[in-house]
Computed example of a mutant assay.
Amino acid sequence: MKKRYLIFLFAALLLLLCGCGSKKEVKTGYQIYYLNSEQTKLNPREYHPKSKDAEGMVKEFLRELSSAPEDVEYQKPIPNDVEITKYRIEGDQLSVWMDSDYYNMDAATEVFCRAAVVRTMTQIPDISCVSFFVGDSPLVDSKNNVVGLMTAESFVENPGEQINAIQTTTLTLYFSNRDGDALVKETQTVHYSSNISIEKLVIEHLLEKPKNAKGKSAIPSGTKLLSVTTVDGVCYVNFDAGFTNQDYEIQEPIVIYSIVDSLSELSTVSKVQISVNGSTKGVYRDSYKLDKIYDRNLDYLEERQKGEKAKSE
């Protein structure tokens, strides 16, 4: 009997151990994804929710994403004028409904808002994907395509560099020629702090005079860069109102493609959108819409234009 009792006790202990091993670990520490003070990237901040179930945590997280944090280094990713009207959990999918003001956000802010919600919510063990609705309709992109379900992997950021490290890189930049009717290509080797993004470095050098005396900056004099960020291959460049100053000595496409072509030389950038004071409404001069996302176009290169002219002659 004693032997049977010991065998039974051992089996019971084994089952208990197996049960503990298969039990899902309860997560207590989470992160809320806020915008940094420059509004150029998302910064996670540790957060310990009071709720234990998915429904309660979603409600709690959405409240945090819509509230201004006390730390000035962080900014809420959901703007004041955007309201979350409802949400619903079905299986492992969270659906979030926004009011129509969602479409009033500029492109960069909208992407950051969406990424912050998705990255924050998919930490919840029962939620693996998020979908968005505006009004009663699914969220669509600038080309009217439905955005669809998103996971944390839908948004990719470059890994951080060591703070204040000095790096060297070679930039390929496109300036205006002296006549303002074509682009001239220039390669510059520059030293810079890793605190500055490579996209910002490109724009800062485009605002300066080129090394080559045959060229000049295509961007209107007095223009200031407010922000620049790249999300999913699209670089969003935000200038102040100085960008609208008209310098008719430089043709419209030369201004636009000086920026687009220079940024597109970066491996992280495939398209570019330009805004003025955060707005993409209207056009630059007569025909270049600000709400359009521009692809690289080297047709305005001076050497290419000369080649085409020689062929025609």
Rank of each mutant, 00 (worst) to 15 (best):
M1F: 03
K2P: 06
K2I: 01
K3M: 08
Y5D: 05
F8V: 05
A11M: 14
L14W: 06
L17R: 00
C18P: 04
K27G: 04
T28G: 08
G29H: 09
Y30D: 00
Y33V: 00
Y34R: 04
N36K: 01
E38I: 02
E38M: 14
Q39V: 08
T40N: 15
K41R: 05
K41Y: 08
P44E: 09
H48S: 07
K50P: 08
K52G: 13
A54C: 13
M57I: 13
L62H: 12
S67N: 11
A68R: 12
P69K: 01
D71N: 10
V72F: 11
Q75I: 04
E83L: 05
T85Y: 09
Y87W: 15
G91E: 02
D92V: 04
D92G: 07
W97P: 06
D101F: 03
Y102P: 06
N104Q: 02
D106F: 13
A107V: 03
T109I: 01
R114H: 07
A115W: 13
A116Q: 08
T122M: 07
S128D: 14
V130W: 11
S131V: 03
F133H: 12
D136T: 14
P138Y: 05
S142F: 11
N145E: 11
M150D: 05
A152L: 01
A152W: 06
V156C: 05
E157W: 15
P159L: 06
I163P: 15
I163S: 10
F175D: 00
L183Q: 11
V184L: 04
K185P: 12
L201A: 01
N212H: 10
A213Q: 10
G215N: 09
G215L: 02
A218C: 07
V228N: 04
V231K: 15
C235Y: 01
N238D: 13
F239R: 06
F239S: 02
A241K: 14
T244A: 10
N245M: 07
N245H: 13
N245V: 08
Q246R: 13
Q246G: 03
Y248L: 14
E249V: 11
E249S: 14
I250W: 12
I250H: 12
S258D: 15
L263G: 04
L263E: 05
L266W: 03
S267E: 09
V269C: 10
I274T: 09
S275N: 11
G278R: 02
G278Y: 05
G278L: 01
Y288Q: 01
L290W: 12
R296F: 06
N297K: 07
L298G: 05
D299W: 01
Y300G: 01
L301A: 03
E302H: 14
R304H: 02
R304E: 12
Q305D: 01
Q305L: 08
K306E: 12
E308K: 11
E313K: 06
